[in-house]
């Protein structure tokens, strides 16, 4: 039986109480919306993407502690990184959160994002954590379509 403390680690609770980059960056030139149809979580992720580098990043919306913290940690991690790094991290996080694969050589380090790993033990909550990452993927692809966790 998974323990709730695995899911609600102090870092997660902190990012839920005080989400980082919870704003629209002034020069945002990419955005995507994410929607969890099961629970109504909704986020908008903004990128200020210049020459393949994420110069600024932010998000807005309303969701549970897991989805909010996941989005907050995402923005904190990716500010100043390249789009290619962000894509690699998306794949790494997707594998981590859905519990499908072990890390292979050359994959990005998790760092603070490790705090989200407890989600894999809570199948009903995986989509809460992946929402921001799918939305990032859509924003990088320049897709205007709304991302739904049910697709």
């Amino acid at each position: 039986m998974p323990d709730w403390r695995e899911l609600y680690q102090e870092l997660i609770l902190d990012h839920n109480r005080r989400p980082r980059n919870f704003r629209r960056p002034p020069a945002a030139n990419r955005e995507a919306q994410g929607f969890n149809t099961l629970c109504g979580d909704r986020i908008v992720l903004y990128l200020d993407l210049r020459d393949g580098i994420i110069a600024d990043i932010g998000f807005q919306g309303a969701g549970c502690a897991i989805s909010t913290a996941s989005a907050s940690l995402l923005t904190e991690r990716l500010k100043g990184r390249t789009a290619a790094e962000a894509e690699a991290l998306f794949r790494r996080m997707h594998a981590l959160l859905t519990g499908v694969s072990e890390p292979a050589e050359g994959q990005p380090e998790l760092g603070k994002l490790e705090a989200l790993s407890g989600v894999a033990e809570f199948p009903t909550r995986v989509k809460c954590a992946t929402l921001a990452w799918h939305t990032l993927h859509a924003a990088l692809a320049g897709s205007q379509a709304m991302v739904s966790t049910e697709e």
């Binding site: 709730w4 899911l7 629970c39 979580d41 549970c64 502690a65 009903t124």
Partner: peptide, 10 residues
């Protein structure tokens, strides 16, 4: 300040 999903899980 607390989302229903978190309430359910806890």
């Amino acid at each position: 300040g607390i989302h229903p999903h978190d309430v359910s899980t806890l």
